[in-house]
Amino acid sequence: MTLSHRVVGSGPAVVLVHAGVCDARMWARQVEDLRVDHRVITLDLRGFGETPLTAGAKYSDAGDVLELLDELGVETAKVVGSSYGGYVVLQAASRQPERFSRLVLMSPPADDVVPTDDFRAFAAEENELLAAGDIDGAAELNVRTSVGPEGDDEARELVRVMQKHAFEVQLAAGDVDNDEWEVGGITAPIKLFTGAHELRFFAACVKHLSELLPEVEHTELPWAGHLPSLERPAEMTALIRAALT
């Protein structure tokens, strides 16, 4: 399986892995900045953006990312991951730690963390909307939940479009088997960001990861929701660039 991907620029490789409410389009502003001195690789995981998802598929998102690095001849990379994309990055870096020199992650979920009440309420409402066939309503719920107060109308509309497309593709595929790998044994330094305006679950996840993994540095962004790279793109791009170095 070859993931839909784009490679621009030259220099050290940096891979950008999108959030579960987005696809590679979320990184447009970061790509334009980083391509000046990096080989920037963006991708769509299965069921997102331009990468299809077939009914009954058996795969691993983390395995797909490692396979793409093999295909592109990338031996070592820095990686930026947002939300679910950060979880995928953690799995890949646990399986092949020698391939990753630095991880910059925004609010990645983590295993073995009890869902908070606000997360449970969100998940229940999303499931109810999808069960009723209300994809538009479910997409709008994700926009309200994920985009913080600093996000403008353009950012909200982009998330709405990306999430609606992902729902349509994934619901059409039905049940699939995505093999998730255990997280641990990562050797690369990790920079974690969370937002003060997102579900409390993600702060709990970052606390767990900070205790589980070595060389973790965490910063809470007081202005941010769950998607800071779309909410204040120029400021977040500067923070990402600093964290990569």
Results as ranks from 00 to 15, higher is better:
residue 229 S to L: 14
residue 136 D to Y: 06
residue 154 E to Y: 05
residue 14 V to W: 00
residue 110 A to R: 07
residue 92 A to C: 05
residue 122 F to H: 15
residue 88 V to Y: 09
residue 78 K to V: 01
residue 26 M to H: 00
residue 95 R to C: 02
residue 183 V to N: 00
residue 82 S to R: 03
residue 36 V to N: 05
residue 66 L to M: 09
residue 62 A to N: 03
residue 168 E to P: 02
residue 235 E to Y: 08
residue 215 E to C: 01
residue 16 L to P: 06
residue 146 S to I: 12
residue 63 G to K: 10
residue 4 S to R: 06
residue 39 R to K: 10
residue 4 S to Q: 02
residue 123 A to W: 00
residue 147 V to M: 13
residue 60 S to M: 01
residue 220 E to Y: 04
residue 138 A to H: 05
residue 104 V to A: 09
residue 56 G to Q: 06
residue 150 E to T: 13
residue 90 L to P: 03
residue 136 D to M: 05
residue 197 H to Y: 13
residue 96 Q to H: 07
residue 77 A to W: 00
residue 109 P to T: 11
residue 88 V to Q: 09
residue 1 M to S: 10
residue 238 A to W: 09
residue 158 L to G: 01
residue 90 L to K: 03
residue 209 L to N: 13
residue 75 E to A: 14
residue 6 R to T: 14
residue 24 A to Q: 14
residue 130 L to V: 15
residue 174 G to N: 09
residue 62 A to D: 04
residue 43 L to P: 00
residue 213 L to V: 01
residue 158 L to Y: 08
residue 168 E to D: 12
residue 185 G to K: 03
residue 166 A to M: 08
residue 33 D to I: 10
residue 78 K to R: 15
residue 220 E to T: 15
residue 160 R to W: 15
residue 156 R to Y: 10
residue 6 R to V: 11
residue 199 L to N: 13
residue 8 V to H: 11
residue 168 E to A: 13
residue 75 E to Y: 01
residue 123 A to E: 09
residue 90 L to Q: 03
residue 140 E to K: 02
residue 199 L to W: 06
residue 50 E to D: 15
residue 177 D to H: 14
residue 3 L to I: 07
residue 49 G to I: 06
residue 102 R to L: 03
residue 217 E to Q: 14
residue 2 T to M: 15
residue 6 R to K: 12
residue 148 G to C: 02
residue 75 E to G: 10
residue 201 F to P: 03
residue 204 A to I: 00
residue 242 A to H: 14
residue 218 H to E: 12
residue 65 V to S: 03
residue 108 P to S: 07
residue 141 L to Y: 08
residue 54 T to M: 08
residue 71 E to F: 02
residue 116 T to C: 10
residue 167 F to G: 01
residue 72 L to C: 03
residue 18 H to V: 00
residue 115 P to I: 00
residue 82 S to W: 07
residue 244 L to N: 07
residue 99 R to K: 02
residue 225 G to N: 06
residue 90 L to Y: 08
residue 24 A to M: 11
residue 6 R to N: 12
residue 180 E to L: 12
residue 16 L to N: 11
residue 131 A to K: 14
residue 61 D to S: 13
residue 113 V to S: 11
residue 52 P to A: 06
residue 176 V to S: 09
residue 36 V to D: 09
residue 17 V to A: 04
residue 160 R to I: 07
residue 31 V to G: 01
residue 53 L to G: 10
residue 126 E to N: 14
residue 209 L to M: 08
residue 18 H to N: 04
residue 22 C to H: 02
residue 157 E to L: 10
residue 159 V to A: 13
residue 237 T to H: 03
residue 128 E to L: 11
residue 209 L to Q: 12
residue 32 E to K: 08
residue 136 D to P: 04
residue 62 A to V: 05
residue 212 L to N: 05
residue 54 T to F: 12
residue 151 G to H: 02
